[in-house]
Write a protein that binds this DNA or RNA. Structure first.
Lengths: 146, 146
DNA sequence: ATACGTGCAAATACTTTGCAGGCTT
DNA sequence: AAGCCTGCAAAGTATTTGCACGTAT
């Protein structure tokens, strides 16, 4: 079982556990979020969903995503100008780096996130709940291969 | 000369250098951005500006901030739900921490961001162009004062 | 003097809400 | 059977644009 299947199942379980109904529309949205590595926007999810449910509306997508957000089954990445993006694959905050040329996404292993959080809590006096870190640039391959 | 005065002057220079007119309204907005450490939102800037210019409008604030953004004299921190915030004091990307109770935004000085970026470039082979780091939690004041 | 800036209002884009009928549990 | 879910439309909210008048250079 790969990570996509795992997430698809996990999200369904989360809905059931919290007494949310698992409708065909919701299943389709879950599948899009579980199998898509590109952090889709609401309207991208909506466009894919329309292929199976031609009469659906963006409101349905917004409502289902809101539920998943509440259950921490999807990570919302806020962009006020480009439209928010949603990550259903790794809904816990994690640093990732995205190549602006080939759009491949890599995890960043180098940084000790826990260390960093401890340091920040000490300095700021905050009780830290959530860390968001997005890095953009050009990857090795695309730099060598113009 | 403290950092606030320095930024106030720098922003004025940037406007003049690029042939933008320095109007009383713009001067007032520059001053708000240079002296405010709480990363104000457009409507917060607008409310302060109204005290001196009772007939001004949000559009004027948006337009001036857009110019400063273009000149890299202000950093836009995007929040799709809470409204964007603007940092005129440190207009290069740097980590922010936002209290989920009082919504105030602070800078994080403790971690050496340049170091971090170097480390990431070395490990990933990326040429890094942009880093966004947002931290959420509860600030000291709100923890003491429930 | 002239071109740019201001500030009103209308337009746009994104997201949320209200509601009637349908479907999951 | 009961209540949540869907999907349409309308309402919010944040931001941008158009335009006539005023002002900085």
């Amino acid at each position: 079982m790969n990570q996509h299947e795992i997430r698809f199942i996990e999200m369904q379980k989360a809905l059931k556990k919290h007494k949310y109904k698992v409708t065909p529309q919701r299943l389709a949205i879950l599948k899009i979020l579980a199998y898509n590595i590109s952090h889709p926007k609401i309207d991208e999810i909506y466009e894919i969903l329309r292929k199976t449910f031609p009469t659906t509306s963006p409101a349905t997508v917004y409502k289902t995503v809101a539920v998943l957000k509440e259950l921490n089954e999807v990570l919302e990445i806020q962009y006020s100008d480009k439209g928010n993006r949603y990550d259903g694959l790794t809904p816990i905050p994690h640093p990732h780096i995205c190549c602006t040329v080939c759009n491949k996404v890599f995890d960043i292993q180098a940084i000790n996130f826990d260390d960093l959080i401890n340091k920040m809590e000490k300095e700021t006096g905050f009780e830290i709940h959530h860390v968001r870190m997005d890095v953009n640039g050009i990857c090795q391959e695309c730099r060598n291969d113009p």
